[in-house]
Design a binder for these strands. Structure first.
Lengths: 202, 202
DNA sequence: AGGCTATGTTGACACTGTCAAGATAAAAAG
DNA sequence: CTTTTTATCTTGACAGTGTCAACATAGCCT
């Protein structure tokens, strides 16, 4: 495969580009990800990628879409564990969320950063995957409210925005290295979970 | 001033660059802020800025420093209002924080975004202004704990990271336009404040 | 007056995303 | 099987970026 004879037509350039992009993303971040380097990685000329992606945003959207799809699966897996108490699932979710962000900082940045969401850079394809993922946050919030873990007198959407905002904020502080150290991740997660669920059952 | 005769030496290029930068920042965002355009704004050649700033990061750091200084003043002003109850000051702080971010999204992005904090792009000068600002968050948290507004059994630093993280996260969701609408800012702030202070006095 | 230093200039380089026009091969149509 | 269409890939080009090196100017200090 690697030493396949290079023909004029690549064969599966789209996948090759996405693979190369995912690799470069994880290693060097969104900012130093250039189409030209990706083309070079794939052994193809500078403008070849334009036959598979409208522009750079479209390629980044495609990568982010996979991230959302993966994360949505993880979230559902955690949420659907019937044999675990709602409270422990909530705690697990918090830890997993921050853990995902800390483990894949560049992917997280791409998924939830301004690069794609500002100026409508996100593709419709990406939105189709991301919005259900956002929605799931509300669904879970409603469930946790019904289980008495989160206050019942708050609008589910607002509460979802706040709880998600908290996780998002902690994730960003960690990723961007702002006054938060990755060695205290678990303590921060526990603190957040405690704060949310404190005396909620009363 | 505007039609002053252009001499070889500008006179106060540093300030002129910072002013132009602040203006362009507010209008078009960090990403489309180029040194060359700033130089043009100041009526000076492309590389002149390099005699006043080591590189682009240094210039951005200088702008961010002013933002931190301003915000720190605002925070202190709110916090020091003796005639207002601690709880109402807390609520005001929450609203002001999100309000500041929503009103000056590009400045907020610069101050708390990855552009400066990643890869040690931030100048020492910036750190000197920003760290006390971060610290103040902890100071306030400790105070609110002592007033029974926030749980006393949590480490102040962790709690500060979580509460700040919440505000930061909501701010980012708003700024980046991710599943949060600016028309519901106040409701979100109230929701967050309620969640934090809920039954804390018990 | 002479020299030092701060400041400003032009030229150059290596990058970037993206468009236009032409080359090639594979697939579809005849 | 040939012809035509279409998908894919190519080189060339353009405007834009940050930044370095080398040179020019002018204000300040001795």
């Amino acid at each position: 495969m690697t030493n396949a004879v290079q023909s004029y037509h690549h064969g599966d350039l789209r996948s090759a580009l996405l693979d190369a992009a995912a690799k470069r993303l994880a290693e060097h971040g969104v900012d130093s990800l250039s189409l030209r380097k990706l083309a070079e990685d794939a052994g193809v000329s500078r403008t070849a990628p334009y036959h598979h992606f409208k522009d750079k945003s479209a390629l980044l959207s495609a990568i982010a879409a996979k991230g959302f799809s993966d994360w949505h699966s993880t979230a559902k897996r955690i949420f659907d564990q019937d044999h675990i108490s709602a409270e422990n699932r909530f705690r697990e979710f918090v830890h997993e969320y921050i853990g995902y962000a800390a483990t894949n900082p560049e992917m997280y940045e791409l998924m939830f950063g301004r690069t794609l969401w500002q100026n409508n850079a996100a593709t419709d394809d990406l939105k189709d995957v991301a919005f259900p993922c956002f929605q799931f946050q509300v669904t879970m919030t409603r469930y946790w409210q019904s289980k008495g873990l989160l206050p019942d007198n708050q609008d589910a959407l607002r509460l979802a925005q706040v709880t998600w905002g908290t996780l998002h904020g902690i994730a960003r502080l960690l990723i961007d290295g702002i006054y938060a150290d990755s060695s205290h991740i678990d303590e921060m997660c526990d603190c957040a979970a405690d704060l949310f669920m404190r005396t909620a059952k009363a």
